[in-house]
Design a protein around this nucleic acid. Structure first.
Lengths: 132, 132
DNA sequence: CCCCTAACAGGAATTATTCTTATTTAAGGA
DNA sequence: TCCTTAAATAAGAATAATTCCTGTTAGGGG
């Protein structure tokens, strides 16, 4: 019988990601959990993030300014990325546009997930520009 | 008056990107152009790719397997990314779904571009799995 | 012919991420 | 409780894509 060990630290990474609405980097996660686990190493955070992603419990959103972002919300939704400050905001996606089905038909591929990102300048960066 | 110097190498990078339908990495571009410019350095390729992107003449698609991919086709279209072999395929996008407009309204942001990616397994990787 | 500036090669530096190794931990059985 | 075993870990080394730096070259305007 497979020994199923739950890692307390991995659970902590997962629930942290689920509890925030930002889209943290590995380093941010490490900083947050350092309080509760003073000996937490950055390598452990990376390893657990990768494992959680492999299990489909979290999603990697791609790098913003050279650092990977993670999302604990695995529901189908889009993201707005501010190219000025790097902030990532969730955006509701209404229904399926049939794109995945079309790609499966036209390319003979199997589509596992879609990833919709909008890039631009967020409200607060626009306001900063005004004041400048 | 601004001195506008055309860089032969930058032009070569741009027209190479425009002439292929794959979505190359900087290293691939460097390898291709090495024939014509034996002393071409990888740093120059990176610099020119960045500059072309800043000018809006090419698009950076985000990293696949740790390496940035570039696209010389700046028309609004989606991409299918094979998670097995890393191949990137263009997918036509039919019209605007109004998402960008909704985000501008709801978030007060300015949306510059949308980026739609589908991930999964491409046809040829599916076939490889069959044979295995 | 002389500046001025962009462009360049070559290589060093940076840095996010992964890998390695020795160690610790916890679960389950005896 | 003690032992076995495999996952989990910390710490730090290693990797590798990308950027930065320095000295040099070359073209165009004046």
């Amino acid at each position: 019988m497979a020994i199923v060990r739950r890692s307390v630290k991995r659970e902590a990474v997962l629930s942290l990601l689920r509890s925030v609405d930002c889209h943290p980097t590995a380093e941010w996660v490490h900083g947050q959990l350092k309080e509760r686990f003073p000996d937490l190493s950055l390598g452990t955070v990376y390893r657990n993030l990768r494992q959680l992603e492999a299990e489909g419990l979290i999603v990697a959103l791609g790098a913003v300014d050279g650092q990977e972002r993670f999302d604990g919300d695995i529901s189908d939704h889009a993201h707005f990325v501010c190219e000025r400050c790097g902030a990532v905001t969730d955006v509701e996606l209404k229904g399926d546009d049939g794109l995945a089905a079309r790609v499966e038909r036209e390319l003979g591929a199997r589509v596992a997930r879609r990833d919709v990102k909008l890039r631009g300048i967020c409200k607060s960066c626009i306001n900063k520009d005004m004041r400048a």
